[in-house]
Lab assay of single mutants.
Amino acid sequence: KQVQVGDEKYTFDTPEEARKFAEKVAKEKNLKVTEKNGNFHVE
């Protein structure tokens, strides 16, 4: 599963790991997490 933050992409083995990372980054940057096709976008 992938997490996209701006132009950066991070790959994780499980959706749970990806979601945790996305939520942590979103909180730090005051952004929101959206899920698209099983991948997460922080925007």
Rank of each mutant, 00 (worst) to 15 (best):
Q4H: 15
F40A: 06
K32D: 08
A18I: 00
K1M: 12
K36T: 11
K20N: 12
D13P: 10
T11W: 15
V25M: 12
E28T: 07
A26Y: 00
E17Y: 00
Q2F: 15
Q4V: 15
D13H: 06
D7T: 11
E28D: 12
E8D: 12
K9W: 15
P15Y: 15
E35P: 04
F21Q: 05
F40I: 10
P15G: 09
L31S: 09
D13F: 05
V5C: 14
Q4S: 11
A22I: 04
Q2E: 12
T11H: 13
K27G: 09
D13V: 05
N30D: 10
T34K: 09
V33T: 03
K1D: 03
K24Q: 13
Y10H: 07
E8Y: 12
G6N: 08
E17S: 07
E8L: 14
D13I: 05
V5P: 01
N37L: 07
N39I: 15
K9T: 14
V5W: 11
K29L: 14
K24R: 08
E23V: 00
F12P: 01
R19L: 12
Q4F: 15
T14M: 03
K27M: 12
E43M: 11
G6P: 02
K29I: 05
N39E: 12
N30P: 02
Y10S: 01
A22D: 04
F21I: 05
Q4M: 14
E35M: 14
K32E: 09
H41M: 10
V25L: 13
V5M: 08
T14Q: 04
G38P: 04
E23N: 03
K32I: 14
K20I: 12
A26R: 00
E16Q: 08
E23R: 00
K32Q: 12
P15S: 13
K1A: 15
G38Q: 02
L31H: 08
E17C: 10
E28C: 13
Q2A: 11
K32H: 12
G6T: 02
A26P: 00
F40P: 06
E28W: 00
T14R: 00
D7S: 10
K27P: 01
G38K: 01
Y10D: 02
A26L: 04
V25D: 02
Q4R: 11
K32V: 14
R19G: 06
F40T: 06
F12D: 02
G6I: 05
L31A: 12
V5Y: 10
Q4C: 15
K29H: 14
A18Q: 01
K1H: 15
T14F: 03
K29N: 13
L31E: 06
D13N: 10
H41R: 06
D13Q: 09
F12W: 01
E16K: 03
E43D: 12
T14I: 02
G38R: 00
N39G: 11
V42C: 04
G6A: 06
N39S: 12
K36D: 11
T11I: 13
V25F: 05
G38E: 05
V33G: 03
F40C: 08
T34M: 11
Q2C: 15
K32L: 11
E16S: 08
V42D: 05
G38N: 06
K29Y: 07
T14L: 04
A18N: 04
V25K: 02
E28I: 09
K36A: 09
K20L: 11
A26T: 02
E17H: 02
V5Q: 02
E8N: 12
K36V: 14
E16R: 01
R19Q: 10
K36Y: 09
E28M: 03
V25H: 03
K36S: 12
K36I: 14
D13L: 08
E8V: 13
L31F: 07
E16D: 11
A26G: 07
N39R: 10
K24D: 12
V3W: 00
N37D: 14
V3F: 01
V42P: 05
K32T: 13
K9A: 10
F12V: 00
E17G: 05
P15D: 11
P15A: 14
T11C: 15
E23L: 00
K1E: 03
K1T: 15
T34P: 04
P15L: 14
P15N: 11
E16L: 04
E28F: 00
T14E: 07
A26N: 03
L31D: 05
E16H: 05
F40H: 04
T14W: 02
V5D: 04
Q4I: 15
V3A: 02
K32C: 14
V42K: 03
A22F: 04
K9C: 15
F21S: 05
K20H: 12
E16N: 05
E23Q: 04
V25G: 00
